[in-house]
């Protein structure tokens, strides 16, 4: 059963994170909401990059930031810290 977390941080849009954990690692994640991300298809790459990672905020942040830098991804209304926060909140509920 996946866990669902909704975040609305100041200056950002609504972000939904649906996530599953297996032995303290991310086994499935789906990020949705009314944010903007360019190019749009990069959202799938971000989700893919998180699979198998342990819930280590620094490691998660580092992985997303590397992907953003290497692929010229631009986020508007969503941030790396919001994604990390959502994963941590979901893990706390698991």
């Amino acid at each position: 059963m996946s866990i669902h977390v909704v975040l609305k941080n100041p200056g950002e849009k609504l972000v939904h994170i649906d996530i599953d954990f297996e032995k303290s690692t991310i086994s499935w994640i789906h990020i949705s909401g009314d944010f903007f991300l360019y190019p749009e298809e990069a959202i799938g790459d971000i989700e893919q990059a998180l699979l198998g990672l342990p819930v280590d905020p620094q490691l998660i942040e580092q992985n997303i930031c590397t992907l953003i830098k290497n692929n010229d991804i631009e986020m508007v209304g969503i941030s790396v810290s919001t994604i990390v926060q959502g994963i941590q909140e979901a893990f706390a509920q698991s």
Partner: peptide, 9 residues
């Protein structure tokens, strides 16, 4: 709906 939204939500 926006590209990143889930229809059921």
């Amino acid at each position: 709906i926006g590209y990143f939204q889930d229809i059921e939500k």
